[in-house]
Design a protein around this nucleic acid. Structure first.
Lengths: 143, 143
DNA sequence: TTCCTTATTGCAAATTTTTGCAATAAATTA
DNA sequence: TAATTTATTGCAAAAATTTGCAATAAGGAA
């Protein structure tokens, strides 16, 4: 039983379908856990879903993002938009100079987010905070 | 005196140059204040810098982002990456269903960010928090 | 001011991403 | 199980973004 079946009920409940292409892409994202570029996702998912095409990869990734199953992340310095499975909330520190990134569970942010939900009326299923700055190493170099 | 001269010293101090193309693009971002797509930026900046080309726009935007003068933002649902001048810290609430966004000054986050600077060693020049969720209207529709 | 160094640009081509539409296949119903 | 509906895919072409490299021009030095 594929890990993608975890997600199928959620999709069906909204009138969407679980296809072999979506299964393959979810499988790749789920097991990698990491940020992957569309090209990497295409290469890996193709093994499980032969005949998979690029347009499908792009459309699926945007679909998953809109439905909260994947998180897109634009890393300054990398040209491609990367995607990651939307598991527990996680947050990124990215160095704007060297591009190195650090993933943190930012518990400190949660109370602030809850408070904002209350005041704005928005409901946040996934919070994904990207903080851009300078890592310790680049603080020396770049001043 | 153009608003871009504000930024010139900072660039020169790092060994970069203030060109007419960068001036034009900074001018556009500075006075719009809003998120703009590369195409919008190209159209507007071209008026001040005739001969401006697309590759220059893309390269300049990435350059400004790397140097903390502009902030990129990927809005789920929009294909193009948008850029905004990096003024005071601001944060976005984006509805993952209809794409509507709300810009907020999220003072509540600041203490958490300062704390993270201390623990990680990263220094955040710009914090740019994008929260993805459902706006009140879409909470009814999308369940 | 003129010269010099090299960061930056424009051009043309390559690559990546998006789009329109007919063909396919997932899920529901009979 | 077979038929039906329509969400989803693949294909081909369009559009957006990136890259390599020679030409240009910003800023410092003479």
């Amino acid at each position: 039983m594929s890990c993608a079946s975890l997600y199928a009920p959620e999709l069906r409940a909204r009138g969407f379908r679980m296809t072999s292409q979506r299964k393959a892409i979810l499988h790749v994202l789920h097991h990698s856990g990491d940020h992957l570029s569309p090209a990497e996702i295409f290469e890996r998912a193709r093994r499980e879903a032969p005949g998979l095409t690029y347009p499908t990869v792009y459309r699926t990734l945007e679909f998953l993002a809109k439905n909260g199953l994947a998180m897109p992340a634009h890393i300054v310095g990398k040209k491609q938009l990367a995607y990651q499975i939307a598991g527990e909330s996680h947050h990124h520190l990215i160095c704007r100079s060297c591009g190195s990134s650090l993933e943190v569970g930012l518990d400190a942010l949660e109370p602030a987010i809850r408070q904002l939900e209350a005041s704005s009326g928005y409901r946040f299923i996934n919070s994904h905070v990207t903080l851009l700055g300078l890592c310790p190493k680049c603080q020396k170099t770049a001043g």
